[in-house]
Amino acid sequence: MPLTIETCVARHTGDRKEQQDRVALFAHPTRPGMLMAVLADGMGGHTGGAMAAEQVLIKAKQNFESYAPQSETPEHLIASVIDEAHVVIKLTRFTSEQDPHSTAVVLMLQPGRVDWAHCGDSRLYHFRGSELVSRTQDHSLVGELQRKGKLDEAGALRHPQRNVLLSCLGSEQPPRIDHGKQAPLVAGDSFLLCSDGLWAYFSEEELGGAIAALSAREAAGVLIDHARERAGGAGDNITVAIIKFVEAPAR
């Protein structure tokens, strides 16, 4: 059956003084049916984090617009965005007084398939209806403890070192890049990209339920409002991108 998409991106500064997250959706300028979503959570002192996150978006747009599917794979394109943004962010350390770093989540839609990759603890969730199909695994200390069975989800949210990343863009070590894909796509598939300012306050069931029941725009608004309430005046920047696949209306 023919599909169409609903999309929304949204941000909230939370209780921070500065918005250091960045998010964007953009279509390919010449190839119909191709879309890229990118989200980055910047870190690194005043303006440094925002500058790092901005570099992720700039590099994503540049590389996506020059994508040549005859000669490169989706995995190669998405990895190049993260790798090259990492190099640029490292170089900015020599031209500024900050120590900039960023996470990255990059998703690319082509007709019939979605590919993605991430580095850090910003997440991508794939839901089918309200059910979770998969989500990215955090490159963080608590994420590693969870994978080893030493910490559960509730303990991870309370852990005093929950913000310690094991990999990110701009660090001394090359970024760790994990890939995922989904093909074919069906009505009811949805993808949520979000920073930890959002996912830290929700179960997977809550996220999937809201996205399945509401439009992309409505779901983004509801999730941000609830995250703000649950943060209790101590919330981080909140950033979200939602892509929903729905049946195309009959002509």
Results as ranks from 00 to 15, higher is better:
residue 228 R to T: 15
residue 209 G to R: 06
residue 223 L to D: 09
residue 192 L to Q: 01
residue 193 L to T: 09
residue 214 L to C: 14
residue 208 G to H: 01
residue 203 S to I: 12
residue 234 A to H: 15
residue 189 D to A: 03
residue 228 R to M: 12
residue 196 D to A: 00
residue 205 E to Y: 05
residue 237 N to T: 09
residue 212 A to W: 07
residue 227 A to S: 14
residue 212 A to K: 11
residue 202 F to K: 01
residue 197 G to D: 01
residue 207 L to S: 08
residue 190 S to Y: 07
residue 213 A to R: 11
residue 233 G to S: 00
residue 191 F to E: 03
residue 224 I to K: 00
residue 192 L to I: 06
residue 231 A to P: 04
residue 202 F to H: 02
residue 202 F to R: 01
residue 232 G to M: 00
residue 206 E to T: 11
residue 193 L to K: 05
residue 189 D to V: 08
residue 218 E to K: 15
residue 224 I to D: 03
residue 217 R to L: 14
residue 202 F to Q: 03
residue 197 G to Y: 03
residue 216 A to Q: 10
residue 234 A to P: 02
residue 209 G to P: 13
residue 210 A to Y: 07
residue 207 L to A: 09
residue 231 A to Q: 03
residue 220 A to M: 09
residue 189 D to C: 14
residue 232 G to V: 01
residue 238 I to V: 15
residue 206 E to A: 14
residue 202 F to T: 02
residue 219 A to H: 00
residue 211 I to C: 09
residue 234 A to V: 05
residue 219 A to K: 00
residue 226 H to F: 07
residue 191 F to T: 07
residue 222 V to P: 02
residue 198 L to N: 01
residue 227 A to W: 02
residue 228 R to S: 14
residue 218 E to V: 09
residue 215 S to N: 01
residue 222 V to F: 06
residue 230 R to P: 04
residue 225 D to S: 14
residue 200 A to R: 06
residue 195 S to P: 11
residue 235 G to L: 03
residue 212 A to T: 05
